[in-house]
Design a protein around this nucleic acid. Structure first.
Lengths: 140, 140
DNA sequence: GTAACTGCAAAATATTTGCATCCTT
DNA sequence: AAGGATGCAAATATTTTGCAGTTAC
């Protein structure tokens, strides 16, 4: 398995176990975000349901993954492309959900715009989920 | 009970029942968004769990309420301040979640900013959740 | 009167916890 | 060897479904 994977785990003081490596690998080799079910029912794999819960939770706590809230109450998880590898988590993302293929991407390189708020409101964190059609699906 | 309430129900071809009136009233007399649990465990009320599920679902289908995805996987429901009363639902909201009081508000009057996307991506709908401190909590 | 809605019970899902065993360090 | 992680079983919590009785129109 990829060297990056055990590096990430070690850097976050998580012991390097098979499940963690495999699950982290899914995220590294996948463009999109994944939900719990996507991981548990991954073809050719047999992850224990509870291990998946605990692994995802650990990864979120360490800032390896972050959650993306979706309207249908199914939380998705994604790696950040940049900062998260350094261990410090930045929360201002744009997430893109393709309504054709269902893929959820984390657009870290796209700047979040300024949002105007009512008087005296303070913004700490802005979460943006854009729904639309991705490049791939547009062509088909 | 408020006349508006039965009006809204009738306009949406929902029969005017006690639960629906009471639940809709909660939203009309409340500033913030409400989760299923907020309604079910409302002090002084005793709503059947299933009725709450079905009522919320009906209201969302009719466009009386819309859902707000939250990071902790608990869906909140809110009235739109403007259009929804006319029955046609517009989806581009800014939602504000106060990290002190926990209230979730729907800022319909605040324009959503343009978001830059990768080449060939098409945006249909933009969902923005701003986390911060509201006017009220700021003062305390 | 009829169709729609409610509320209870029960089924189906999803999530959390406890614990003995196994693996990493 | 010690602490942490896994995986099974079981406890909880959440959501959905079926249906008989009730209510709105």
């Amino acid at each position: 398995m990829d060297n990056r994977i055990s590096d990430i785990l070690r850097r976050n003081r998580l012991s390097v176990t098979e499940s963690r490596q495999k699950i982290l690998n899914l995220f590294l080799s996948n463009t999109g975000a994944l939900a719990h079910a996507d991981i548990e029912h991954k073809a050719g794999e047999r992850f224990d349901r509870v291990t998946v819960y605990r692994t995802l939770q650990a990864f979120v706590e360490k800032g390896i993954l972050h959650t993306i809230p979706t309207a249908d109450n199914s939380i998705k998880y994604a790696l950040c492309k940049n900062d998260c590898f350094e261990g410090h988590h930045h929360d201002n993302h744009i997430h893109f959900v393709c309504s054709k293929c269902g893929k959820t991407e984390c657009l870290d390189d796209f700047i979040i715009p300024a949002v105007k708020l009512p008087k005296n409101y303070i913004a700490n964190n802005i979460e943006i989920v854009v729904n639309g059609v991705c490049n791939n699906c547009r062509k088909n």
